[in-house]
Amino acid sequence: MTTMALRNTGTLAWRTLVQIKHNPFELIDFSVQPIMFLLLFTYVFGGAMAGSPAEYLTFALPGIVVQNLIFATMNTGIGLNTDITKGVFDRLRSLPIARSAPLAGRILADVIKQAWAVALLLVIGIVLGFRIETGPAATLGAIGLLLVFAVALSWVSVLVAMLVSTPEKVQIFGFVLFFPLTMASGAFVDPATMPGWLQAFAEVNPTTVVADAVRGLLSGGPVAGPVTWSLAWAGGLLVVFAPLAVRAFRRRI
């Protein structure tokens, strides 16, 4: 039964990834948009924020990676909602396969896409002048932490997908939720200059703690605190949203 579940999950993850071949827009979504953000933030804000683009890149790259990662979790929900509204889920559910596979396959595929986006941003960051001051182990640790956080947060996206009627609504909801969440944080600026109430929010914001953890793991600096907080956020999101999402999933389909 478990080998079947794993194999079914692998097949359905393949199915999600092979779509990229036929829908190049998805690749643009995954690659061009974060690269554009990276270039704009570095060269437009860099000088004003930190004296020089290179200086700012060191601070902002982890923030940009985290912001992109958070937005990309909505793709899980958009894909699931599309499958349900188009009837693909009915076909899958009428087959003798593991019940968990459609959900697990989608999440696995999206983690692979996330890993690709993170790696791409790091490489382009390095081309632009970002330097990893730590080592390969810490770098892998940073990528691992990002992916763990992405999986935990994707349950929010699954829940939203089960509650709304169309994929477009998942997208709108994600934007409204995640745009303020990622901006009102320490991802792009030091929260010290924000008004007190916003500063308080920014400091506990998961965007901030994950970006800080990635900064620590790539550039050196405090690691233990932000990594612990990041994992706590991941755990909290998982504990709250995974059961809600699974319940909504069972009810919807």
């Binding site: 097949t11 359905l12 092979v18 009837g87 693909v88 899958l92 087959l95």
Partner: peptide, 21 residues
């Protein structure tokens, strides 16, 4: 409502189901 995956080719749709089975 035709429940094939519109983003996959004809071959890929059938391949996916064969593998799932």
């Amino acid at each position: 409502y035709a429940s094939v995956d519109e983003t996959l080719t004809g071959t890929e749709n059938l391949l996916m189901i064969g593998r799932l089975l």
